[in-house]
Amino acid sequence: MSRPLALALLLSSACFHVRINEKTGDTRVQKTTFSTPFTDTQLDGACADLGTGLQTVRYSSNLGYAWLSVVTFGIVNLVDVEYACAPQTGVEPAPRPSPD
């Protein structure tokens, strides 16, 4: 009985999340980013097709990523990044329908 308990504790430990402006249950883009002290990760043009900003931005790491960073002396840094795009909001007059 203690082994599954220990396993559950192990699996759920050392995994943390940072959640920013969380509005939805799911995200549109999910990727693992790779950064070094010499190469930053940049995610540009996100949501450009909608012309909106980001929401539900999640940043996650775990024990494996932490160890990888330690054993490579901070050179290899992995982070899971997820985000959604904010919906297109605003107000406009309800247009009369255009003919087919």
Binding site: T52, P87, Q88, T89, V91, E92, P93, A94, P95, R96
Partner: peptide, 14 residues
């Protein structure tokens, strides 16, 4: 259709 979230304001005459 999640991206579409505007409010469409009626003209009173409609």
């Amino acid at each position: 259709v999640r991206a579409m979230a505007k409010r469409l304001a009626f003209a009173a005459g409609d």
